[in-house]
Amino acid sequence: MDNKKEVLDTGNEGVKGLMETIASKVSVDQSKEMLSNLKDSIVDNIHERTERAASFINSLKKDKIRNLERLLDVTRKELKKSDKKNYIYITDAGRMVVIDRDMWGEPCTVTVKEGNRVMLRLVKFFNDYPYLFPVFNEKNLNGEIIFMTDGEIWYRDKDVATLVLFKNDKPDFLTINLEKVKGYKEKDLLKYLENCKILYLEKRLNDLLLVERKIAIEDIVRVRPGYAIYKNSERTFTILLFDQLKALCDEFTLRKLPNLSEEALDVLFTLDIVEYIKSKGYAFENFKQDNDHIEYWQEIGSKRVCVMRYKI
């Protein structure tokens, strides 16, 4: 009986071992299949993402080219040649435009030939919008471009900003130390750099504000060729108005600035408008902005009436 039980136990153990072996083999095979499927899925996902990224980059490049074509006043119909090195356009009037590409395929320079006149320009993009500049040496310029407009490129590198200002096709490099404005947000920093630029270009305003009145640039709210606003220690604002020769014409103080855009302030603080506002006794602080207009409202009887409205 014991021998029979032993045989049965041995048989059971054999079957159990066989089942475990089979289960183990099935488990291994399933794991291999799962790993293979996972690998294929990851590879497919990477390929899909790569294709999407490549498609997105190509789309951006096409948008840049279209914007550049509009700036250069050429169309796709006038494109005669396109390869890795350049695009060549020839208009019906015989004007030739050659856009050279860098090693990444981005437009880098433009040559325009019209009659006997040949013009070479450097291409720069900011927010995908193209700008053309005279060719200049960028070798010593570090940092990222934070602002660009016609005739100007602003670079920032840590605690220094460099403004490249073009005049008569020649670059002028203005270096500005940013130690005192480290905590400025981008919008405030751009305003600060704009004020520095104006004071650099307008020597008479520089002498009046920084030398004679010893105003810190950080306290200047806005300075333009026609006016300046700066903060006083008693939390008021001084407004200075200048004539075309940058001579001081008027000066007054406000406890509060009107809630207007910079473009609206440029309109409000002009000699003629300031003179009219003062003659009417209107409070500068109460001017409002309605889209592209500045307005002044008054209570007349039981009604509130707009008594002054001026287009920005």
Rank of each mutant, 00 (worst) to 15 (best):
Q30N: 05
E69K: 06
M34R: 13
M1P: 00
Y131N: 02
C249A: 05
L165S: 13
K182T: 03
G14S: 13
Y129Q: 10
L193F: 07
L132F: 02
L248Y: 13
L260S: 05
F125E: 07
L72F: 05
N116H: 02
W104E: 03
K32Y: 08
W297N: 12
D44W: 14
V118E: 06
E144N: 07
G115L: 08
K303L: 05
V135G: 00
L209Q: 12
E285F: 02
E263S: 04
K280W: 01
S279F: 07
M34T: 09
T162V: 15
V123G: 02
T21L: 08
I312F: 09
K77C: 00
N45W: 14
V160I: 15
T21A: 10
K303V: 04
N137C: 08
T50V: 06
Y129A: 07
D2S: 10
K158C: 09
R213E: 01
D128E: 15
S302E: 09
R235E: 00
Y276L: 12
Y192G: 02
N127Q: 03
T111A: 05
D219A: 12
Y155F: 13
I215H: 03
I46K: 14
K64Y: 11
I146N: 05
L132V: 00
D2C: 07
K84T: 12
V223D: 00
R121K: 12
Q298E: 15
L120H: 11
L38G: 01
K64T: 04
V211M: 12
N58I: 00
S279W: 03
D29N: 12
H47E: 01
L68V: 12
A161V: 13
N67D: 08
T91F: 05
T253D: 01
I277M: 10
K39W: 12
